[in-house]
Simulated assay, not measured.
Amino acid sequence: MTTRQLEQDPCGLERPGSGRLAQAPADHPPVPGKRVGVLLANLGTPDATDYWSMRRYLSEFLSDKRVVDYPGWKWQPLLQLIILSRRPFSSGKAYRGIWNREKDESPLLTITRDQARKVAEGLHGLYGDRVKVDFCMRYGNPSTDSVLRRMQAQGCERILFFPLYPQYASPTTATANDQAFRTLMRLKWQPAFRTVPAYFDHPAYLEALAASVREAYDAAVSPPEVLVASYHGVPKRYLMEGDPYHCQCQKTTRLLKERLGWDDDAIVTTFQSKFGPEEWVGPATVEHVAELARQGRRHIAVVSPAFAADCVETLEEINEEIKASFLEAGGERFTYIPCLNDRDDHIVALQAIIRNELAGWVEP
């Protein structure tokens, strides 16, 4: 994209360096200098851990048809009258155990903000002020709608939308895209829009993941006997209906194993966070780690390749509930390997993906 293209406004008037329109009539609305936007999207976070904050967040999350696709007439009475009368208490307790008290926010919000800041710093060195980076949440704040509108007001007429999920899944990637498209449907002037595809097999992502495992094993007093790659779960029905998530998770584990140079029995794939009565893809992490302990494994490590940032599913569910399941079944040492978060090699991987997806829009 040339400087002239970036400075041309839709009325055919050119901006001087100040960003004001040259030769524009007095009543012409202000038009910011053109930019390309990069919007990182993550799952979401409650604003606080009290009952009503948790209820608002859980209601938005569990009312999403991508997450729970039962008919509304059947699901909503159960959700609003029964589930949301109790679950905000238990979920609030889980969040309080991991809450960033210094900033009074969830770790997911802290980490995603740090990721966006570091990505922005790296891209600024390549593109300067031509590229604007921001972040949003599918549920809670900052909302997808508010950030997309802000980016457009800042002159982003082309936006690259990046759901931070290495493996594509309908309840994660697809619903993040859906929410962005809902905003586009309401805009008088839509920006050009691209979405980033799944990146589970991207070499830079895999190398960052492998490096995090190597570092954890090198730091351990004795190496874990098994690495459990625990992914968030989905109903088995989704796999049967064409969702590629399960297959992409299996391939991620295989590619990670190959990059580490390990034998097949050194790493296993499991799934966590089962919700509801129907059958989910498995094996279930919480059950499988207990079985490993009963088989005589005394030290295991758990990594979460489907999460780009640590959150309640990793910091509380894995590092507390799943850890307890292993130890109570006879295990002795449990190593949790943090998500890639804002590690430098992870940021490099995200920037490499973004650079590829920006091709044709803006060049370094």
Rank of each mutant, 00 (worst) to 15 (best):
residue 207 E to D: 15
residue 245 Y to H: 12
residue 286 V to P: 00
residue 281 V to D: 03
residue 66 R to A: 06
residue 287 E to I: 00
residue 80 Q to P: 01
residue 217 Y to R: 14
residue 7 E to H: 15
residue 308 A to E: 06
residue 364 P to Q: 05
residue 104 D to K: 12
residue 247 C to A: 12
residue 62 L to I: 05
residue 75 W to K: 10
residue 307 F to N: 02
residue 4 R to W: 03
residue 61 F to K: 13
residue 258 E to P: 00
residue 179 Q to E: 15
residue 33 G to Y: 00
residue 352 A to Y: 02
residue 362 V to T: 13
residue 59 S to Y: 05
residue 16 P to R: 11
residue 64 D to F: 02
residue 288 H to N: 10
residue 272 Q to D: 07
residue 66 R to V: 01
residue 231 Y to N: 05
residue 343 R to F: 00
residue 89 F to E: 07
residue 239 L to G: 08
residue 194 R to Y: 08
residue 252 T to I: 05
residue 254 R to I: 04
residue 165 Y to D: 06
residue 271 F to D: 03
residue 224 P to E: 08
residue 184 L to I: 08
residue 340 L to A: 08
residue 20 R to E: 15
residue 223 P to M: 08
residue 181 F to E: 11
residue 321 E to I: 02
residue 208 A to C: 13
residue 27 D to Q: 10
residue 36 V to D: 06
residue 5 Q to R: 14
residue 358 L to T: 04
residue 211 A to H: 06
residue 291 E to T: 03
residue 11 C to K: 12
residue 37 G to T: 01
residue 70 Y to N: 11
residue 90 S to T: 14
residue 235 P to T: 10
residue 192 A to E: 12
residue 204 A to R: 07
residue 88 P to L: 08
residue 261 G to F: 04
residue 102 E to C: 01
residue 51 Y to I: 01
residue 202 H to Y: 05
residue 69 D to M: 08
residue 324 A to P: 00
residue 188 K to P: 01
residue 349 A to I: 00
residue 188 K to V: 00
residue 269 T to P: 01
residue 361 W to C: 07
residue 70 Y to P: 02
residue 126 L to E: 12
residue 147 V to L: 02
residue 82 I to F: 14
residue 154 Q to E: 15
residue 38 V to L: 08
residue 3 T to P: 00
residue 104 D to A: 11
residue 351 Q to S: 03
residue 17 G to A: 15
residue 299 H to C: 09
residue 87 R to Q: 15
